[in-house]
Computed example of a mutant assay.
Amino acid sequence: MTTIRLLLIFCLGICTSARAQFSDSAHYYFNYNSTGSINKTNDGSSYLLNNGFKFSVKKKTGVLNLNNNWIYGRSQTDLTNNDYNASLDFDLYQKKIPHFYYWGLANYTTSVSLKINNQLQTGAGAAYSLYDKPNAYLNISEGLLFETSNLFLNDTTHDIYHTFRNSLRVQFRFVVKNIFVIDGSNFLQNSLSRGSDYIVRSNLNLSVKLQKWLSFTTAFNYNKFNRTSRENLLLSYGLSFEKYF
């Protein structure tokens, strides 16, 4: 309950701060994607479902994003994935320095495959867009995160700790002929107190637009959580729905 309470308090603070900054007219974006894979043979079956939801409010002074992702998978009768991630983040643009902005983040994770019972990260930093065009975008960001976590070292032993992490992110998006879209976010998060404690996240997507609002999407997701010596790699495909209003 303490973790959830901290997340709600931080999210409320983010929303209040962002709302105070957003004084011009708003533009909204909604995206839902559902990808997965099924394998069935005479010897058994396995399946994986990957569902994601994103909602954004964008104005001249900044943007507020809400992201949710749930991955569920089974192989035979064994549960392989029940991984949920929710994040609320905002960017505040700077008029005096083009392509530069400040960001803030609250992120919650629970993951069977990575042996994370609960993880809460909150933090802030700065980012700069090395290239920023309608059809091509490349951005790098750096910041500091405070993390509180409850991990499973085994079935009976928990690792409960707090740490500060450096967070490095490289983000990109390329659109080819308004049909093909390649985008991704890659994170490296090192603990400042323990060199062997680091997190690697990579999310890559290739989409082909079928309609203005509908795309066929292939998603590649890789996560490594060195503290629990766990990693997962997911390759799935399905449909993505998006709407600007």
Rank of each mutant, 00 (worst) to 15 (best):
Y137A: 02
S196H: 09
Y72N: 05
T77F: 00
S111V: 00
L153F: 09
F225T: 07
Y28N: 01
N42Y: 07
S207K: 12
S129W: 02
T228G: 03
T61W: 09
T156N: 14
N190K: 13
C15K: 10
V112L: 02
W213E: 15
G13E: 08
L151H: 01
K59V: 08
S240H: 08
L8V: 13
W213Y: 13
D83Y: 01
W70V: 06
F90Y: 11
N68Y: 08
T228C: 04
Q171S: 14
H99N: 15
I179H: 10
I4Y: 07
K243H: 15
D89I: 03
E142L: 15
S129Y: 03
H158I: 08
A124N: 05
G52K: 13
L192Q: 09
L7N: 02
T3D: 09
L7V: 11
T77I: 05
Y198F: 14
P98S: 12
S141G: 14
N42S: 15
E142P: 02
T3G: 08
T218N: 09
N118T: 12
S149T: 14
S141F: 04
Q189C: 03
S56C: 04
V181K: 08
A106D: 00
Y101A: 05
Q119H: 01
N190R: 13
L8R: 13
S193Y: 13
S56E: 11
R227M: 04
D159Q: 11
S75R: 12
S240M: 09
N150I: 14
F164M: 07
L7D: 01
F216V: 15
W213C: 05
E147F: 00
I182C: 07
L151G: 01
E147A: 09
A20S: 13
L151V: 03
L145R: 09
N81Y: 10
N118M: 02
N139C: 11
K243D: 01
S167T: 05
T228F: 00
T16E: 13
S191V: 02
L79Q: 09
Y29N: 10
I14M: 14
Y131M: 13
D132Q: 15
T35A: 13
N51D: 10
G13Y: 08
N42T: 07
D24M: 02
Q171E: 12
A136K: 07
A127M: 05
